[in-house]
Structures are given as structure tokens and as C-alpha cells.
Design a protein around this nucleic acid. Structure first.
Lengths: 195, 195, 195, 195
DNA sequence: AGTTAAGCGAGACGGTACGTCCTGTCTTGTA
DNA sequence: TACAAGACAGGACGTACCGTCTCGCTTAACT
């Protein structure tokens, strides 16, 4: 019995890995999602195309990892109110969606994910997972305070928050700042408070 | 006073126009947005590529017109409450976004619009215009009833509604029915009620 | 008994006719044969494309008429010797083939003629006809002087003269002057003298 | 001492190379020069268009190589007389110009070469080079025998021979056989004999 | 004077070819 | 086995030209 997957041959070069991610992020910010072709990324990273395809199966996966992976899932600080917590969460969401690379990547990236069933499923399971866990935590505190009902449709609320931010900033390109987070938190927060 | 621009030359063939729009809608429903190339549309419509480019400058404009033009701006019936009116409006929005062609087209189409500044501006001025006028009307009635404040951020509320529906159904592909409209109307309706 | 083909309807506009020929000659000299499209000719002449196609069935016929029609078949002056006569004839041929429009048109034009059987036959019957009649006249005088045999293969000699000039100047673009005519006349003249 | 240009990357596939040349020759013979488009060649060769453009910059270069490259520069056998040698050389020239593919290709091909300066220069340096070397050899023998002058204008004689054959057979499509070679050899041979 | 027929400028039409770009796979030599 | 390089088949892009057609209008000759 041999080890199930003993790595044989030359190990993968982690510098190539990082160079590809960096090149991807730069290209996205400079030229946009459409112009960020695998060939262009490889050329800028000084890497062969195969070295990209060996690690990612296509542009969407590559861009996803290049843009949305260093997001540390910082837990929402306990502000004491549902609305306060929502504001903090939305502020982080806005910042994440308006970062230089992300703003350029999101519309095309989400369209590519939505177009392929196996990727589409990953929007919720990967893209939204960190935000959802924070939202759940936030709700649990609100329920304990009696501010919210325990049977809130969490996924739908999350889709609303993400959809609103994405549509407003990602698609329409409206300027986004803390004020946006506050306004949305006000609307949605009041909308889900226990009556 | 002479007519400002007498039409010279052979007039455009309205049958070709219609054949292109029909072919576009069919291809979208059958093969999706990515596979709906100008060449494929022209071939299916029995038309030269020039005949397409003469009318539309690219795929995004063509698909937009093929999918989102027969939308009659039906005014929102007066249900007597803000939440009732919102439910009706959202129900129409959900139906519009989940129609066979629209569901296939929306993610890619909005990505293409967002990627080009001159098209991006048209998302609000054309895509959202009918919904906005209905939303404004609905708000005015609510303000008169004292249900809502007169200084509501209409655009932001509209972005929230559209973003929520688009994200939930268009991107994530979640099943959408009247229940979704009701839930969203409940959240957002309560969120903007006069306190 | 009516006239067999009484011209009915509006008669053709001779100014359009001339404008087309002029535009063709100018375009040939300025942009070459390949860039002399029917559409470009029509646009420059201020004329519809149909007005061109009504008179000429294609580019080759149009260019042929625009370039090789004002050639008056000046009879060869009687210099007293076969070689002298040949020199004069060749000098005219060189001048005809190196005129601004002709030089630009000839290679493409002859290729188009050669590619279509019905046009190919016209190379000899129209293109070469004037030169042939002059060559025949020249030969008859030489035969009478005893300088040449009466059974010369006139067509072949003509093909040789035309081919040599066309290849040397038209295809290779070698500078062509009276010296070329003299050299060719020397070679071919001596080649066909009675032994 | 390092190799000046180490070949990097995947080497070009010689089977694709050959398939393209074969497809080109077949298309020329079957459909003619005009219908021999790069796209049609690629399709018949089972090859992408890029694979053609990677090797040849256009139709003219491709056709030239497909048709005029297997010409082995057989030296002219020493028949003992200028006229005999010329007959042999012309016979080869006639055969070369009337081969199935060549006959279909030559007029259009030479027109395309003549239309572009950088290609035009190659008519003499590549097209005519083998024939010229044979003609020079032939002349040297004739000079040694005292049959010809040492200061013959070789290029002009070559242009005359090639022009005559091309015009007679290539453009006019006249039937060409050994008799044509003999007649031309008689005319030109006598024309350049030492007096 | 009214009718008829053709010419005319303009430009739309269905088709075909162009030359470039991108995709995802493959095949070299080198490490 | 990875890697850089780059060739490969396939297919879309947007442009140009072809030769035909369809408009509204004009210009004659024949009622």
C-alpha cells in the first residue's frame, strides 16, 4: 500500500502561483475583466499558459481566487444594536465590492459564474459564505436581545444586502461610502425588526 | 418648413429587423447569452451580419432590445397600502427577470453594460426608468396616506429592490414566485415606513 | 413597322458616364487596381452603384474602357526597314503600357480577364486588335521589300512583343524608355528577318 | 559559442505545413486563384486560419510556395547549338507555366506580386532566378562557340522569353506544346546570334 | 396634358472573405 | 513531473466589397 497521492516529480513553483495572481489583479484593475485573458495573464506573469490551466480551470476561477481570497472573515463587532451591527457588516461589504480589482471584476465574474451550473452553486457556498456566517452571528445576538425573530429568512436577507450593494455600486457605478451602508442598514434593519 | 431629414435610399426592411430580434430571443433561450453571437443571430435570421450591425452597435444593445422592449409600463394598481403596492411592483419585476429569454440574458447583459461607460449610464435611464416611474407613483400615494416620508431615497430603494431580485433569481438561480415578492415587500416596505 | 428598339424612358445621362470613367482613371492612378472598387468609383463620381452596373458588368470591363479606349490606332509610319518600323510600334506599346493609369491597372486587369473565359477571348479580339493590324501592315511592307517571309506567325510575334513589354514593365516595374523599344526591336526584328 | 537562436516552444507541425500546401494546390486546380481563399484552404487542410497566417503572410506568398517550389533547377543539357539549348529551356518553361495548378494561379498571382513593392522585387529574385541561371550557363557556352556576343542583356532576353510564354499561354490560354518552344527559340535565338 | 417607362442617387440587402484575437490542448527542450 | 514557449483547431470578432434590390424622384417619348 503506497501513500494515496505521494507527490512525484517536480513540485509546483509557488512563485509562479503568486505571479499569476498578482498579474491577474493588476490586469483587472488596468484593463478590466474582458481584457484579462488567460494568455495576457500568463504573458504578464512570465509564465506559460499551461501553468495557469494546471491550477485553475478557467478565467472565472482564477479571477475569483485573485480577488476574493485574502478577505479575512473578521467577525462583526458587537455594537449592541441590530442596526449598528448591520451597518458594520454592510460597510465591510461595500469596501469589498469597491476595491479596485473587485469593482472591475465583479459584473463579468458573476455573469460567468451564473452561466455555468457548477460555478453558480459556488456563489452561495463560497462567495457568500463568510458574509452569511457573520450575518447569522449578528442575527443570533439580535434574537437574544429580542430585536429580531428567530425565523428570519437569512439567505434572502443576505441576497438583498449583497444584491443592493452589487447593483448600486458594481453595476451602476454609483459612488459608495459609509453613507450607503448606513442608509441600507436603516432600511433593512427596520424591515426585519421584531414587530 | 421642410422635413428636417428626408429619408433617402432604400428603407430598412422591417421584416429583417423583426427576424433578427426573434432569432436573438430564441438563441438566448436555447443556448444562452455567451453562445448568442452576432454571426449566429444573423445566420438564424437569414440575414447578413452587416444588417445586424447597421441597427445595433453590438451584442449588448441587440439583446437589450430583443428582450426588454415589449415591457409595457403598466401602472401599479392602487391596493391602498404601501406594502400591497410594493408587492405588486415586485411581482412584476420578478416575472420580468425570470422570463425565459431574460433569465438567460441578464447576467451577461448587465455585465456588458457595466463594462462600457456609455452603456452603463443607460442601465438607469432605460432599464430602470419604467420601474422607477411606477415606484415614484406608489410612493406619492403612500406619502399622501402618511405611510412614507417625502424624502425617501427613491433610487436607492429601487436599486435595493432590483438588486435583490436580480441577485436572488438572476445570479443565484433560486426559484422565484409570488412568495419572494411578498417577503421582499414585507422587509423593504416596513423598512421605509414613516416612523 | 416600328423601329426595332425605340429608346423609351429617360435616356442615360452622358455626364454620369463620363464622370464614372474619370473617377475610375483617377482611382487607378491614386490607389491602384485592387482599391478601385465599384463602390469607391461610384462614390467618387457622385453616382449610384447601379448606374455603373447598368453600363458595365463588372470592374474589369469598366477599367478596360476607362484606360484603353482613347488609344487611337495610329498607323505605323513607313521608316523603310522592318527594324525601324518595329521600333516605332514598340515605342508606342511601351508608352501605352506605362501610362499612369495603365501601369497600375494592367496586371490585375489582365488577370481578371484571363480568369473568365468570356473576357479572356476579348484580350486578343479587343486589346491586341489595334496593335495586330499595325503589325500586319508593317509585315506586308517588309515582305514586299523581301525582308520578311510571308508566312510569319503574326499572332505569336505579337504575343512575344506584348508579353515582353508587359512582363518587363508591367509586372517587374523596370524603367522603360525608347531604349527598351530599340533593344526589343533589334532582337525580334533580326529573329524574323528572311534568311 | 551558443547557438544563435535556440528553437523554443513547440515546433511547427510539418504535416500541417504539407496539408496546407496540398490543399492550396488542389483548390487552385479545382476552383481557380480567386476562389482559393485562406479560409477555404485552412478548412480543406483541417487547419486553423492562424496556422496558415503563421507561415505565410497572405495568399500570394502561400500560392507561390505551393506551386513554384518543387521546381528542380535541372541544368540545360548541352545540345551543341544556341537554338537547341534555347528550345530545351523554353520547353521546360512552357511545361512549368502550363502545369494544372500553375496555369490557374499565374495571372492572379503575378498581379498580386506586382501590386505590392516588397513582393514585386521577388519576381526576379525568386521566380526567375532558376531560369536565369540556366540561361546564363547556356549563353556562356554560346559565347565560347562564338555564337553569341558576351554583352547580351540577359535580363531582357529572359523577360522576353518568360513574357512571351506567360502572355501566350497564361493570359491568352493558347494551346502550348513543343512547337511553341521551337518557334520562340527560332525567333529569339536568331535575334541574339552574333552577327 | 397625362401616361408610361426608364434612369438616377442613395443606401439596404444576403453573402463571402478578410486578418486578428482568445480558448483550451498539445508538444518541444530544459530543469 | 513542472515549466516557458509557442504551435494547434476552432470559432467570434467587426469591416469591406460584391452584385442585387427597393425607395422617391426626374426626364423623356408616346399617347
Amino acid at each position: 500500500m503506497a501513500a494515496p497521492d505521494a507527490p512525484r516529480g517536480r513540485p509546483r513553483d509557488s512563485r509562479a502561483h503568486q505571479a499569476i495572481l498578482t498579474a491577474t489583479a493588476e490586469l483587472l484593475a488596468e484593463a478590466g475583466y474582458a481584457a484579462t485573458s488567460i494568455g495576457a495573464v500568463a504573458a504578464r506573469a512570465g509564465v506559460g499558459k499551461d501553468t495557469v490551466y494546471r491550477r485553475w480551470s478557467g478565467k472565472a476561477e482564477l479571477v475569483y481566487e485573485a480577488v476574493f481570497t485574502q478577505t479575512e472573515a473578521v467577525p462583526v463587532p458587537d455594537t449592541g444594536t441590530l442596526r449598528g451591527d448591520l451597518t458594520v457588516l454592510l460597510d465591510a461589504l461595500v469596501r469589498e465590492f469597491t476595491a479596485p480589482g473587485a469593482a472591475a471584476a465583479l459584473p463579468g465574474l458573476l455573469a460567468d459564474f451564473a452561466a455555468r451550473p457548477e460555478l453558480r452553486a459556488r456563489i452561495r457556498s463560497q462567495f457568500l459564505a463568510p458574509a452569511k456566517s457573520r450575518l447569522v452571528e449578528l442575527f443570533e445576538r439580535a434574537v437574544q436581545r429580542g430585536e429580531a425573530d428567530p425565523d428570519l429568512p437569512v439567505d434572502l436577507v443576505l441576497d438583498t444586502l449583497a444584491g443592493a450593494v452589487f447593483f448600486h455600486t458594481g453595476l451602476l457605478g454609483e459612488p459608495a461610502g459609509p453613507q450607503l451602508a448606513a442608509q441600507l442598514a436603516a432600511i433593512v434593519g427596520r424591515g426585519i425588526e421584531a414587530r
